[in-house]
Design a protein around this nucleic acid. Structure first.
Length: 550
DNA sequence: ATGTAC
């Protein structure tokens, strides 16, 4: 973000937002010239660098956001892809939204950002270009905090995430229909259980350890189902946090554990999918080569999460947060935004339970990938798929940002570490891969983070983001409206046209329209915003051949 | 997202 340099300026400030983008050289008290004030008020210039002292940060690392203006509504900043909201009411800071000018901002999602900015102890609120309404906090945002954790800022689908498997084959050498059918035989789609139920004790041990815990667990039926020999623990350097977060399964309710025990290696419903894809375009030859990607290549993308256990953990702890707030007469911004102070035991419990669910999700995707690999190897003897990357896009984690330990909540936002933060890994020269799916039937992207994404706490969008509610999309309600308030049901014909040439296996044909391409924002436009804002770069564009949906 | 609500 380009920062204006001013000699002097009178203002009150929101909490500091650290940025490594530029050192501060100017002085921060005094008056601002009327011409500049007009620019600020017009939203052309909403940031200013000043020196100052606040908190533990070094003065030169601080950028204050001007918040003394009472600006109405949303201000378009001079930066084409950044919108800074006016700070008003009880907001602790001015949230920013990275988006594309051609994508209209959903009013209710913006309101949710304002609400989140009122949380006590919140440091920063940043909307992603795929932002849309979620429970309490929008999907497609980053909430940075110093001393609270907010379960709604993680969401119900803890560690919903992406995984990409690469093949050495060209798409023309593969029959996607056959592969999709083979996968469907092995992985339950939609609401469903598997044959890999674990006893309570083994399950607890497994989710405490994450993917590496698969070494110690015995799943006889899985061994029978797999026709080839696989190391259960493999490729963990290609999983975010090596598939293992510091978990405490004892902080999960019995109900949460019970739901999890029977759902390993199941896809789930909603926007979860397995997609067979072809590499459509290479945008960065050197990085693509490092990642083992080439034009025309056959790859498989998987999108799933923590299923019942994550949902239950979210439910349990949001209920607990509300209960405690009521008991202690602690104020909540609204009923959907309970939170815990990090000094409270409940915060540790939530984070431990959340990480147990997160580990479940890593294991879930890992096992499904194994079944996919096995299916593929059966159809194409000698061809083993390789894991490029597995990432979490619904999670809260402690990270260093400019010398401070910050709890970064990413809800529908993907971590996008550049090369610097990937030191000591095989991605030290490229940055981590970031997997960004479009909607069913449209393109997906492989991206890499830059060193310039401190503004979003090293995060980018997690996908395309809805533009139409589920109810509106499936036409279940006559009063169905899209998120801009227009009446919009998708006809069967329109749906078929959007999916033309793509082989679709769907568990529930009645609800699959909720995931229609028309219900989502334009992934190419969103990617343009992310690249334009300097948050990430594109490596490859992928197009769908076949989709398996819950 | 979700044993798609208590």
């Amino acid at each position: 973000m380009a920062l204006a340099r001013v000699r002097s300026l009178t203002f009150t400030v929101s909490p500091p937002i650290w940025s490594s983008t530029r050192p501060v050289t100017t002085n921060g008290s005094g008056r601002v010239a009327p011409s500049r004030l007009r620019r600020l008020a017009a939203g052309l210039d909403t940031t200013a660098i000043v020196s100052g002292v606040l908190g533990r940060a070094k003065p030169r690392d601080i950028r204050y956001y001007v918040s003394s203006m009472s600006l109405e509504g949303v201000n378009r900043s001079a930066e084409r892809f950044v919108t800074t909201l006016a700070r008003e009411g009880g907001m602790k800071l001015a949230p920013r939204i990275f988006s594309h000018p051609r994508i209209p901002l959903e009013k209710d999602a913006v309101r949710q950002l304002r609400d989140a900015a009122q949380l006590p102890g919140v440091l920063d609120v940043v909307g992603m270009p795929d932002i849309h309404v979620g429970y309490g906090v929008p999907i497609g945002c980053v909430i940075a905090a110093l001393d609270i954790v907010c379960p709604a800022a993680v969401g119900y689908d803890v560690n919903c995430g992406m995984r990409l498997l690469t093949s050495p084959l060209r798409a023309g050498e593969v029959n996607p229909k056959r592969v999709a059918d083979e996968i469907a035989k092995r992985i339950p789609l939609g609401e469903g259980k598997n044959n890999y139920a674990l006893d309570k004790k083994s399950f607890r041990r497994l989710v405490n350890k994450g993917v590496p815990g698969l070494a110690d667990v015995d799943i006889p039926q899985l061994a029978k189902d797999l026709r080839h020999d696989w190391e259960l623990v493999s490729e963990i350097d290609n999983i975010e946090d090596r598939g293992s977060l510091p978990a405490n399964a004892n902080a999960c309710s019995d109900g949460a554990l019970k739901r999890g025990r029977t759902q390993l290696a199941t896809l789930g419903g909603g926007n979860h999918f397995i997609e067979l894809q072809a590499v459509d375009r290479i945008e960065d030859e050197a990085v693509a080569r490092e990642f083992g990607l080439f034009k025309g290549q056959f790859v498989i993308m998987l999108h799933s999460g923590s299923r019942g256990i994550g949902h239950q953990v979210g439910d349990d702890y949001m209920a607990l947060g509300r209960q405690i707030a009521d008991k202690d007469r602690r104020e909540m911004v609204n009923r959907e935004l309970p939170y815990f102070r990090l000094s409270e035991k409940h915060a540790d419990d939530y984070l431990g339970a959340m990480n147990a669910a997160a580990n479940f999700a890593f294991i879930n995707r890992h096992l499904m990938a194994l079944l996919v690999k096995d299916a593929f190897l059966t159809s194409y003897p000698g061809v083993r798929l390789k894991l490029l990357w597995d990432l979490a896009h619904n999670i809260a984690k402690f990270e260093e940002h400019l010398g401070n330990r910050i709890l970064v909540h990413r809800k529908g936002a993907a971590r996008a570490f550049g090369p610097e933060r990937m030191k000591g890994t095989r991605f030290a020269h490229t940055g981590q891969p970031v997997l960004v799916p479009g909607s069913m039937g449209t393109a997906s992207y492989v991206m890499i983070g830059t060193e310039k994404n401190a503004d979003t706490y090293a995060s980018i969008n997690h996908g395309a983001g809805r533009v139409m509610s589920r109810i509106a999309a499936s036409g279940r309600s006559r009063r169905g409206r899209d998120l801009r308030g227009r009446r919009a049901a998708i006809s069967d014909e329109d749906f078929a046209r959007a999916m033309e040439g793509i082989y679709l296996i769907s568990e529930n044909i009645r609800t699959v329209k909720e995931e229609a391409p028309q219900a989502y924002k334009d992934i190419d436009l969103i990617t343009e915003a992310v690249v334009g804002a300097g948050l990430a770069r594109t490596v490859a564009r992928l197009k769908p051949l076949a989709v398996l949906k819950g």
